[in-house]
Design a protein around this nucleic acid. Structure first.
Lengths: 220, 220
DNA sequence: AGTGATTGGTGTCGATAAGACACCACGCCG
DNA sequence: CGGCGTGGTGTCTTATCGACACCAATCACT
């Protein structure tokens, strides 16, 4: 079956920059391209938009197909459409940013037969197409989102923490997401002011150091 | 001539929200649709992306074709692609925001035979497609851009002022762009801190009131 | 039991930005 | 010459941010 148009149409894809934290470091999920162009290169996962689905829905579908993760808030980054970015045909991609908990992802990436791997953001391979540019923009957007407002995206940050967590653990997560070190006292002021922390009146034990108080978060 | 693809492709357009100030009020340029769908409705100008041009280049081309204005910084707003937003076929549009000087526009809109009109943002007609949503997003983005940073877009604000202007004139322009009234003293502090104003040591005359000092801006 | 290592936990100060707010100055017109 | 209309100025409060240093509690080891 073929589709014919009076005028040329570009292909439109949705690419999703899927960030996670693994072993305390920011990672991004990339897939290895099995076919030309850029065969063997790594690329941001994504795929073609279907004709009957909204762009963000298509992005969510691709995300679920490729990782099994659903219900994640997706933030649109923008459209990238430089001619020649795909040597086969004109492809315009709409990029999204997602932040997903690492443990869900490990599971699915393992069962998924396709060649997908987490990459440390500081050890990226050469990327296909213009995905290096997109990923850099996505990295900046992620840091900005998590830094500033109490958005859905920022709430996802707490998925990297156990239900009961210490403030030091929380600080490590936000430092990783923001890509910079934070002052301990200033961070504690910030998190107390911006999130509804519940003091569980419990303490850690077992470390060869002073026990830490445990907290949980209440979302409004 | 026809173009055939193995899989269906959406059409991709660039729509440009062209803002200007006319008689002290924020206006947007809309065109009347001559053909179905939405024949007779007003719409944001835009058009199809060519296969060999970048999206922002296509947006600039459409802007110039429809208004004669070139060299204007375009800011991408995002992609809009809800299915059914165009009843004919699947159309994904990438929206841009432009701020152009009013006098250039009057000239071109007059020579342009197509039916284009400036609309006061407070007296908008019913719009075709989902252009009401896009325009609302564009309005917010415009206000944000002009408010905060010293960007190219913000520099365009000074195009609505004569080379020699009074601070009251400048305040009126920024109030219009931001959509809110500003405190006189705070505005003067802000503009002095953020822009390189040159005191021309001249004064207005002719008003039945105290003369105003004239300034010009030096861009860095 | 003592000591050192390790992480937990706390408060102040200064700079900066933003917003609220009121009065006199000056030229023109009548 | 008086009043109308716009021009022009400074202080205070508040909130936010970042820089910055010390003691506390537990554990491991001796």
């Amino acid at each position: 079956m073929a589709y014919t148009y009076e005028y040329p149409h570009p292909a439109v894809t949705a690419d999703i920059c899927i960030f996670s934290i693994r072993e305390g470091r920011l990672h991004v999920l990339l897939i290895e391209r099995l076919a030309d162009p850029f065969q063997g290169s790594w690329a941001i996962p994504g795929g073609f938009i279907k004709m009957d689905e909204d762009i963000v829905v298509g992005a969510a579908r691709e995300l679920e197909e490729e990782t099994g993760v659903a219900g994640v808030p997706l933030e649109q980054l923008g459209a990238y459409g430089m001619p020649g970015r795909d040597p086969r045909e004109r492809v315009i991609t709409v990029a999204f940013v997602a932040l997903v908990p690492s443990d869900q992802m490990v599971l699915t990436a393992a069962t998924d037969a396709s060649d997908a791997r987490w990459f440390d953001m500081d050890e990226l391979p050469v990327l296909a197409f213009d995905h290096d540019v997109i990923l850099a923009d996505a990295r900046a957007k992620l840091a900005d989102k998590v830094t500033n407002r109490v958005t859905e995206t920022a709430k996802s940050a707490f998925q990297f923490l156990p239900k009961k967590f210490t403030l030091a653990q929380a600080q490590a997560v936000f430092e990783t997401l923001r890509g910079e070190e934070l002052d301990k006292r200033n961070f504690r002021k910030w998190i107390a002011a911006n999130w509804d922390l519940v003091d569980l009146k419990e303490k850690t034990s077992g470390g060869r150091h002073r026990p830490a108080a445990l907290y949980s978060v209440d979302f409004v």
